[in-house]
């Protein structure tokens, strides 16, 4: 007997992500889902961003890793609330894992929550966690062919930070190609060229992010 079903496999996750999002909205919180390959500089970007913004923006961080609490420890040193999620093998975070961290935060006292996803250019793009938008980092050492190889993540992200541009003189990587290919996939993509090592280009990212946090408050 054949039975017609027609159900989205990710429906359960989408439902929880929406509940998370409703709660974030209630508290006027801007939530970013930060994704990249392992080692592209997610935690470094967070450290820099916290230093730059923490005087006028109250930030909280969720760190997603398969194993270890090193990242949350690095973030906690910056004096902001940080919760580590260990997925125990899973290659991405989902709505449920995010929900489980809620009691560790006081959302009333926060303006911005950044979720650092598990390092992976594939699966995290499929799973909503309740974010306002997804942001991704591509480091130039990964190569300029990545947008065409991993189109989904470039399509789903609102922001692309191209990191480690201080290394460009030493490698064969074309910024133009990264820009061109990612804008073909996502013409709306906001691109920042940065180096978390030297600080180059980060000021522009901070300004943009400050503006987003402010606008989030205005909408409410």
């Amino acid at each position: 007997m054949k039975v017609s079903v027609v159900r989205n496999i990710l429906e359960a996750n989408d439902r929880i992500a929406q509940q998370n999002r409703d709660l974030f909205t209630e508290h006027g919180l801007l939530v970013i889902n930060l994704m990249s390959s392992p080692g592209a500089g997610k935690t470094s970007l967070l450290e820099k961003t916290i230093d730059a913004l923490k005087d006028d923006v109250d930030i909280g961080i969720i760190e997603g890793d398969i194993q270890s609490s090193q990242d949350a420890e690095r973030i906690a040193k910056k004096g902001v609330p940080a919760v580590q999620i260990n997925t125990g093998g899973a290659c991405h975070l989902d709505g449920n894992m995010i929900r489980d961290t809620f009691e560790e935060f006081d959302f009333e006292k926060m303006d911005l929550l950044i979720v650092e996803n598990v390092g992976n250019l594939v699966c995290p793009a499929e799973f909503k966690v309740g974010e306002d938008f997804k942001a991704m980092i591509l480091s130039v050492t990964e190569g300029d062919d990545k947008p065409s190889k991993y189109p989904l993540m470039f399509r789903e992200s609102k922001v692309l930070l191209i990191n480690k541009i201080d290394l460009l003189p030493y490698i064969d990587c074309s910024l133009d190609r990264i820009r061109e290919d990612s804008l073909k996939i996502n013409p709306e993509l906001r691109i920042f060229q940065v180096s978390c090592k030297t600080g180059e280009g980060l000021e522009e990212w901070y300004e943009w992010l400050r503006e987003r946090v402010k606008n989030r408050e205005v909408i409410l």
């Binding site: 007997m1 054949k2 496999i9 990710l10 499929e126 399509r155 073909k184 996502n186």
Partner: peptide, 28 residues
């Protein structure tokens, strides 16, 4: 993966299929 209209060249487009992940039918 060029997200632009082949007829008029505009990038104001939406994806209508190709990101699916759905169960359509089961046989039992």
């Amino acid at each position: 993966y060029v997200f632009a209209c082949p007829s008029c060249g505009d990038t104001n487009i939406k994806t209508i299929s190709g990101q699916d992940l759905a169960i359509v039918e089961i046989e039992v």
